[in-house]
Design a binder for these strands. Structure first.
Length: 542
RNA sequence: GCGCCCGUAGCUCAAUCGGAUAGAGCAUCAGCCUUCUAAGCUGAGGGUUAGUGGUUCGAGUCCACUCGGGCGUACCA
């Protein structure tokens, strides 16, 4: 429908030149009486033309060359909106389109041939993924799915660091637990990792090695064992959610390959850094940021900024057209430094898209749970999946805008899992599958020959909803808004459930029956394609 | 103190780059199953969009300030 209006305005602009100056947009009116699509061009032109918007609208309309088979009515309404009403026949043709494209319906080729990198999760292997990581994991994967749907070839990437202070403490924690288990009298400091998993790892070392490791360095087998075990668990959890990273990028390789040193040299050569107080500083204030920051400490160790910049340079070297970083608001302060560094090195910053999601506030028994891996005060993602299932977890994190400070009431999630909107969508899909089983038994075959019979309100509303799918996906992807996919699918499911209630398929006149079956099949395809982007299953029975 | 994010129905959230009468779900209440799955449908109640000013044809949306909450503000990541 939008495509038709665009070409309509395009041909009209040959007569009315001022139409070329305006950015054409169409919106779907909330109120049905305002048509199927609406344009506000006339109002946007009031200033430059110095005319009443309704007069302008009048002039535009009178120059349209309308196809009566497509547009049934055009009217001017309110302050100067131009409202378009499409013919029922035209609306019904979407079914053909859906049935012939099937799995590919909704996908677009706008970004065909482009490559994107989506970095998400990126948790260091110090403990199991928590509910807090869940939001990052799910929306990161959904972004990747969305980008694929609009033509990108996407690499999912996980950046991690198995060196540094956190990991030292991890090794120390395991060793102390190990000594603990062997009956040694040791003090376990409060700021060490308190989690039960540390004890499990230590226990398995006791089982395998007995007392042989008592004199081993904590940075050796203790740390290595912990990292391996924890990473194994992280990957297992992600796998449950259907998340698979193509690339695991270890920060350490940046040092081994000399990229850190060479970056440091580049900064120095370009006079972008200087030494002060025995440390190396990056001239961020000259790059437009608030203040200069240290990139190499007086101990000789780099701060996280240097490897972060070096890491992102590798993304540029790997020739991506789009580089997406997703992280929680606790890291929001770090990315301007990275961007400034990249810009100073003449990298095209417009390829970067840094997305920040707000925190998930967990409440349990009416109280806010402050999550801390160190203090072992957390609810793991695995526990959540055990409680409510993969589909609910994925849907729940996808359904809210990433900027919302979302609340997660654990009790409510368990209790209301039956009433979660995800079941509403899945139920629509299962209902259609059920109809398909019945019609097959009855020998009813779908047909696209008599789609013009689909004229009731319920049928038309469903058809219109279906026709906006591709546009919704495109917008969700371009704006990085997975929650819009959820809203769309909920509306689609609602339109279907109404259609189901009022329009019978089995037991009506043959041509109508076949046309309605075609509509039901088209709906099934769109539901399936949409749920697939969200990573949610579409059961055939419930 | 400063920076970023947020504040919408009892609760959780929407609202198409500023659009027409602010919408869903849950919860509450009243109806609908001899016919394709009632995990559904129909209807009702529920709002000074935190507050005060401003910008304009038009503001939940943009600007300023105030109040309240989250996250930052390291030679930790």
């Amino acid at each position: 429908m939008k495509a038709y209006l665009l070409s309509l305005f395009n041909s009209t602009s040959e007569k009315l030149n001022y139409l070329n100056e305006i950015n054409l947009t169409f919106e779907i009116p909330k109120n049905l009486e305002h048509g199927d699509l609406s344009s506000n061009v006339a109002m946007l032109l009031t200033k430059s033309l110095r005319k009443n918007p309704r007069q302008i609208a009048e002039e535009i309309i009178s120059n349209f060359e309308l196809d009566k088979d497509v547009i049934s009515k055009v009217e001017i309404a309110g302050p100067g909106f131009i409202n378009f009403f499409f013919s029922k026949n035209y609306v019904a043709t979407i079914v053909k389109n859906i049935l012939s494209n099937e799995k590919d319906f909704g996908k677009s080729k706008k970004y065909f041939g482009k490559r994107a990198n989506v970095e998400f999760v990126s948790a260091n292997p110090t403990g199991p993924l928590t509910v807090g990581h869940g939001r990052n994991s799910v929306i990161g994967d959904t972004f990747a799915n969305l980008l694929e749907a609009i033509g990108y070839e996407v690499d999912r990437e996980y950046y991690f660091n198995n060196a540094g202070r956190q990991m030292r403490v991890l090794g120390d924690s395991v060793k102390l637990r190990y000594l603990n288990l062997l009956g040694k009298d040791v003090v376990f400091p409060e700021d060490y990792y308190q989690g039960e998993y540390i004890r499990d790892i230590a226990q398995s070392l006791v089982n395998d090695f007995g007392e042989k490791l008592i004199d081993e360095n904590p940075e050796g087998i203790f740390k290595e064992k912990a990292e391996k075990e924890i990473f194994y668990e992280i990957e297992k959890t992600l796998k449950r959610l259907g998340i698979f990273h193509k690339i695991f990028y270890n920060e350490h390789t940046l040092y081994e390959s000399g990229k850190i040193d060479s970056l440091l040299n580049t900064f120095k050569e370009k006079n972008l850094s200087y030494e002060k107080d025995n440390a190396v500083w990056l001239k961020l204030s000259e790059m437009g940021n608030d203040q200069d920051k240290v990139i190499v400490k007086n101990t000789g160790e780099p701060t996280y900024r240097l490897p972060d910049i070096a890491y992102h340079i590798t993304k540029y070297e790997r020739n991506y057209d789009l580089i997406v970083d997703l992280f929680g608001s606790d890291h929001a302060a770090t990315y301007p430094d990275v961007l400034a560094g990249l810009k100073a090195l003449d990298k095209d910053i417009s390829k970067m898209k840094v997305l920040i999601h707000q925190f998930v506030t967990i409440t349990q028994h009416g109280e806010v749970v402050k999550m801390s891996t160190r203090k072992a005060n957390y609810i793991t993602l695995d526990e959540l999946i055990d409680e409510v299932g993969v589909d609910v977890v994925r849907y729940f994190f996808n359904m809210r805008a990433i900027n919302t400070h979302m609340n997660f009431d654990i009790e409510l999630a368990k209790k209301q899992s039956d009433e979660n909107p995800v079941f509403y969508l899945q139920y629509a899909h299962a209902r259609i599958c059920s109809i398909l089983r019945m019609t097959e038994a009855e020998g009813i075959k779908l047909s696209i020959e008599n789609l013009n019979l689909l004229i009731s309100d319920e049928e038309q509303k469903l058809l219109k909803k279906l026709s906006f799918f591709e546009e919704e996906i495109l917008q969700s992807a371009e704006n990085f808004e997975p929650n819009k996919v959820c809203s769309y699918l909920e509306e689609l499911a609602a339109a279907f459930h109404k259609f189901y209630t009022f329009c019978r398929i089995i037991g009506v006149e043959k041509n109508l029956s076949e046309a309605r079956l075609a509509l039901a099949c088209a709906t099934k395809i769109v539901l399936l394609n949409g749920l697939k982007i969200l990573g949610v299953s579409a059961p055939e029975k419930m």
